Simulated assay, not measured.
Amino acid sequence: MGTIRQGANGSFSGKTGSVIGASWKGIDYIRGLSRKRTKAASEEQLIVQARFYAMTKFLMPITPILRLGFGQVKSDRMTPTNVALRQNIDKAVIGTYPNFELDYSKIEISSGSFIGGGATGISASLGLLSINWDVTLNTLYQSKADDQVIILLYQPTANEFMTAPTPPMRADGAIDITIPDHLLGGKGHVWIFFADRKGTKVSGSTYLGEVDLL
């Protein structure tokens, strides 16, 4: 049974007859009860579903990073994760149905206008992933020495992500991250972005490329 809120003219929550009332992100809405599909999905629908699944499978494990990376994108109707999905599906899902793949170089894990780290370098040797960035501060963008540096590594063979145990700061200029033994021997894809310490300013992510994890 539905519950009426704010009097007879207000919204309601729960099931009433053939409709359901609910609220999401402060928006009240009514939807009909789901109906069982009686008609097979068209090829176009299957293609859309497959593209969505390919990107969702990749992004869901890094939801906490996406909350920061896309947290400043203004959207009253979408979560940061859904914004990330929307921006990446069209750009980074390649190939033909049903054999879709991801173009890692086009995947974005953050979106914003905060200043990044300038020139960056990356290498892997003796079980360490080494990354460096520019520490120069920018008065116009109000960058700070204690800005967070978010680094993400993805190893496709193991289908596993890793980050620095504690995000380094802009002033550090470099970091060596220990690569777990089970990720060594394959190739890794690496991204980086910058955020102020409160997470209220975020840069766009930079794809640093593919690296042999030695």
Rank of each mutant, 00 (worst) to 15 (best):
F52E: 07
A92Q: 05
A50W: 03
T120I: 11
L126Q: 12
V135I: 12
E43C: 09
I115D: 06
G112K: 01
A84T: 10
N138H: 07
L129C: 02
R35A: 14
T38F: 14
T38I: 12
T81G: 11
M78V: 08
L102V: 02
V93G: 06
G112A: 07
E108K: 09
S13R: 10
A8K: 15
A84N: 06
G71M: 08
L129D: 03
F12H: 00
V19G: 11
N82T: 00
S113I: 02
A119W: 14
L66V: 02
Y104T: 04
A41V: 10
T136E: 08
N132D: 12
G69F: 01
T96Q: 13
K39H: 13
K74T: 15
I27T: 12
K25D: 09
L85A: 09
S110L: 04
Y97D: 05
P61A: 07
G17T: 05
V93M: 07
T96G: 09
F70T: 03
W24D: 11
A54P: 06
A41T: 12
A22E: 12
F70Y: 08
A124M: 06
S125K: 15
G116Q: 03
S23N: 15
F114S: 03
R35S: 13
P80G: 01
Y53T: 15
R51C: 09
V83A: 06
G117M: 00
S105Q: 08
S34M: 12
R51H: 06
D90M: 14
V83S: 07
M78Q: 10
G117W: 02
L137N: 02
D28H: 06
L129E: 01
K57Y: 11
S18C: 10
Y104S: 01
A54C: 15
L129T: 02
G69P: 00
A54S: 13
